[in-house]
Structures are given as C-alpha cells and as structure tokens.
C-alpha cells in the first residue's frame, strides 16, 4: 500500500505466564491509510487490545514490525523519540480508570503540554481551556476531579488529552463501550468531526460491529490473535465470507426488521473462544466452526485476497492451497 500511516507486519506478542505462553497476538498484518478509520473487531481474548497496546508501545512486540510512515517503531514507549509520542495517541476504554481520580481535569490536560514543552504556565492554561472548549466542556471543569463528571464527559476529557499534542494517529480502544448509546452517538460524531478537521487516522478497537458499520472505512475481524477477515466496510457487511464473521453478524441483537434482513441466515453460535494458552491446531476457529471439514483441524489457512482489498483466512477460499497442504507436513501445520 502506498499511503500507509501505520503498518503492522507479522506482529506477534507473547506473554510468558506460569500456565504457559499466552499467544495474545500471533502474526497480525494490516495497514492503516492516511485519514481512514480501520475497525479492529473481536471478542475478548482475541488480542485486539494487545495489538493496540503494542502499536502505542505499552508492550514491546515479540516479533514482527510496526512501521509509522515507513519508519520502524517496534519498541516500547519509553525508548521512542518525543516527536513519535506526540504523533501517536490513545483513548482508553474506561475513562473511569484512565483519568487519575486524585488529579484535577486541568492537571490531567496540562501533563502532555508540559511534557511536550508547550510554553509558559499561562500558555498552557489557555491551551487547556481551548481543549475543553474543543470537546464542548465549560472552562471551569479544569478545577473539577474526574469523579465529579459523568461517564461521557470523562471520555471527552480523555479525548481532549489525546488531542492535546496534535497527533496524526489516534488509537481508540473501545472508547464508547462503557457508555450509553445516546452519549456514544455524541462522542462518535465528535470523533468523526475531529477526524475531518484535523486529518486524523483512527485505529478503532471495538467489539461492536454495528458501530463499525457506521464509522469505519475498513473492518478487520480478529480471532485468537489472528485476523480472519479484512474488507472495506460496505463489502464486509454485504458479503461476509469467513464463518466466524457470519456467526458474529448473526449474533448481533438489532432493533429493526430491515437490519434483521441484512444479517446472514441464522448461524447458531456455539462454543466459546479457547484460551490463548492452548491454541487449537490447524485453523484456530475450527472448534466452533459450523462449516469445518476434516482438514481444518490439521491445516492452518493462509490469508487470500478474494476481492478488491477483501482478505479472508479460511481453507474454503483457498482450494488450490488446501489440496497441496492436505498431505501432512506441508503448509502451515501447527504442532
């Protein structure tokens, strides 16, 4: 891809625990274009948040590369140059825990300004008030503590903090999943407005596919540390291919018959996501898949492009590869 602001290449992040190696992210590749929104969707335990934290540098990757505008940045945040910290920011899921309860909103918003050397105290004060105004909060909120604010207002403060350094790439880690829908609507619209005005690129982590339908330019589905399907949004919802995508789509509770009609024919969801310590052999989804055959437990599928920018990782869509891999020992067979 030509115009990528962020690229992940075979990104892996393992954690060593007493129970064994947790393969949280296990070979994830994607690219994020300038000013687009890439939705990274998955259930808990799929590795979507770990991917985000590795990109921002809370974790150092075990293997693979992260490229920001073509420059390799695969190292923890403490070892990154200041300009890079400025350019990539994150909004965490729960504003109740991402804002220090013992500091005032003013102090919270001032921190990134201080770190990145914004002028004098007076300049910073003006900038703090400007940031509050940007997210439509009154200036006297600078004196308040986070616990005096409602959930939506707190998340707006967290967004203002992320925008304080004028970043180019913002990682949104489930920014509205702890909030009510009426507040979610307000925050999402605000985020979309900022994206337009400031030319931001968003990596949007979420479990909510209906939200992604309305926000993302492209959607990627993660399952157990791998991406199983990635496609432009319209294509993704019109022509879901991976059995897991279909199961997800048909599980979403909706509010109108029109939406009901859009869901793939009822795929009865079964099973639960296995522990990333004991990753199933072959295709990771085969333990819950309704369309599996005998190859799936032995052969891990390659990712293939089935349409314009539509990537799927399922043996059904790679017949030539599958037949070649049918003999044990060839292909990507897991131990």
């Amino acid at each position: 891809m030509t115009n990528a602001i962020l690229e992940a290449v075979e990104l892996k992040k393992y954690f060593l625990t007493s129970r064994g190696t947790v393969r949280a992210v296990d070979g994830v590749s994607f690219s994020l274009e300038e000013t687009e929104t890439l939705g990274l969707v998955g259930e808990s335990g799929s590795g979507k948040s770990t991917t985000a934290y590795t990109v921002i540098g809370i974790y150092a990757p075990t293997a693979g590369k992260i490229l920001f505008r073509g420059t390799e940045i695969s190292r923890p945040v403490a070892k990154r140059p200041r300009s890079l910290k400025r350019a990539i920011q994150i909004v965490f899921q729960d504003p109740g825990t991402s804002l220090n309860p013992r500091r005032t909103i003013g102090q919270i918003l001032e921190l990134p300004l201080k770190v990145h050397g914004v002028g004098t105290k007076r300049d910073r004060k003006e900038r703090v008030i400007e940031l509050l105004r940007l997210v439509e909060l009154p200036p006297e909120y600078a004196y308040k503590s986070p616990h005096m604010l409602g959930g939506g207002e707190r998340q707006m403060v967290a967004i203002a903090r992320a925008l304080a350094t004028e970043p180019q790439l913002v990682i949104l880690d489930e920014p509205t999943s702890a909030l009510d829908v009426s507040i979610q609507a307000k925050i999402i619209n605000m985020l979309l407005k900022f994206q337009q005005e400031m030319g931001l690129s968003y990596l949007f982590i979420t479990h909510d596919l209906s939200l992604m339908r309305n926000v993302a330019s492209r959607v990627a589905i993660m399952y157990l540390g791998k991406i199983c399907e990635l496609a432009p949004t319209a294509e993704f919802f019109q022509r879901p291919l991976h059995p897991y995508t279909k199961m997800l789509l048909s599980s979403i509770p909706v509010v109108s018959p029109e939406e009901e009609a859009l869901k793939p024919e009822k795929v009865v969801s079964q099973g639960e996501i296995p522990s990333p310590v004991n990753v199933p052999s072959g295709c990771r989804f085969h333990t819950r898949c309704l369309e599996k055959d005998e190859r799936c437990s032995r052969v891990g599928p390659e990712t293939v492009e089935v349409g314009e920018g539509h990537l799927v990782s399922c043996l059904k869509f790679a017949p030539q590869l599958a037949s070649a891999a049918a003999a044990p020992g060839s292909g990507e067979v897991e131990k």
Binding site: G57, Q89, I90, F92, T97, L111, P112, V115
Partner: peptide
C-alpha cells in the same frame, strides 16, 4: 497497571512525575 498510569507514560511523563504525582496521591 492502571490505565491512568499508562496514559501518563504514553504522554511521555517522567518517572518522578508518575511515582509522586500519579501513584502516590492514590496511596495517601
């Protein structure tokens, strides 16, 4: 491991700031 400490780290705050301004007030 709280998110507000990680948020401060991502913002690039210094170690003394994180120890004495972010963590300590929550221990008081």
């Amino acid at each position: 491991n709280e998110f507000f400490v990680q948020a401060a780290e991502v913002a690039g705050a210094s170690r003394p700031h994180i120890l004495f301004r972010e963590i300590l007030p929550n221990c008081v």
